[in-house]
Every structure is written in structure tokens, then in C-alpha cells.
Amino acid sequence: MLMSHGKRPARLHYLPYSFRVLSPGDHVTCAVSGQAIPLEELRYWSVARQEAYASAALSVEAELADRAKRGLPV
């Protein structure tokens, strides 16, 4: 069980199938929408960009934007 640390953003290191808490907190911020994501609900992130996403759709949106920015086919 994750411990609550009172409305404070956590700092995480995102790994392929999990994440490591670097600084305790109760949420992270979605890189696309800016929405607070409680750690208990965090399911989507990018290991390469070290970003969290509030939904699968926002994750895909970020991936497509990154590919377009790098000149790769989308």
C-alpha cells in the first residue's frame, strides 16, 4: 500500500513495468493535461521521456507528438 504524504507531488523514476519513488508524495502530474494523478491510479508513463499520463489516450497523444517533433512517421 502506498502511503499518503498530504497533497504533495511525488518525484518518480519510471521503469519499464514499475516506478521508483524518489521523493514521497500522493500524486504526479500528467505531462499532457496537467491533471493530478494519485499514485494508486497511475497506470501510464513513458520510460524514455520520464513522464506520467492520466490515460492511455493521453499517452498515445504524447507519443505521436514526440514522434512528429523528431520527424518520425506518425
Rank of each mutant, 00 (worst) to 15 (best):
E41K: 10
L2C: 04
A68C: 10
E61N: 08
G71H: 11
D66S: 15
L15T: 06
E41G: 04
A62E: 01
E41S: 09
A31K: 06
E61P: 02
S33E: 13
C30Y: 04
A56S: 13
S46D: 11
A36K: 09
A31W: 00
H27V: 00
K69M: 13
E40P: 01
A31M: 06
S4M: 08
L72C: 10
G25K: 03
H13L: 14
R20M: 07
Q35K: 10
V74Y: 15
K7P: 06
R43Y: 00
L12R: 08
D66P: 06
L22K: 07
L42N: 07
W45D: 02
K69V: 09
A31D: 08
K69Q: 15
K7Q: 13
P9D: 09
Y17T: 07
L2Q: 07
L12V: 09
Y17V: 03
P73S: 14
Y14I: 00
L64D: 08
V21F: 01
R8D: 02
R49H: 11
K7A: 14
L2K: 06
P16V: 07
R70S: 12
V28K: 02
A54C: 13
G25A: 02
A56K: 14
E41Y: 05
E41N: 08
T29Y: 00
Q50F: 08
P24A: 08
C30R: 04
G71S: 11
A68E: 13
L58T: 04
S59C: 08
L64Y: 07
Q35T: 06
E63W: 11
A56P: 09
S33Q: 13
C30E: 09
P73L: 15
R43Q: 09
L64W: 07
L58Y: 06
Y14C: 01
R67A: 11
L39H: 05
E51F: 00
S23H: 12
Y53Q: 00
H13I: 10
K69G: 14
V21K: 02
R67C: 07
L2N: 07
Y14G: 00
G6V: 09
Y53P: 03
S59A: 12
A36C: 05
S59F: 05
P38H: 05
I37V: 12
A65D: 07
P24E: 11
S55R: 04
A62N: 05
H5Q: 10
H13Q: 13
H13W: 12
C30D: 11
L72N: 11
D26T: 13
R43H: 05
K69F: 13
A54W: 00
R20Q: 08
S33G: 13
V74S: 15
Y14E: 04
V60G: 10
E61M: 11
R43I: 01
D66E: 15
P38I: 03
Y44L: 06
E41Q: 11
G25T: 00
A68Q: 13
D66R: 14
I37R: 02
G6M: 11
L58N: 12
V74T: 15
L22Y: 02
M3A: 13
P38C: 04
L64S: 10
E41I: 03
L22S: 02
L22M: 11
A57M: 05
P24Q: 09
H13V: 07
P16A: 09
M3F: 09
A10F: 02
A56D: 14
A10T: 02
H27G: 01
G25F: 01
A62V: 01
S23K: 14
L58H: 12
Y17P: 00
A48S: 07
V60L: 15
V47T: 10
V21R: 00
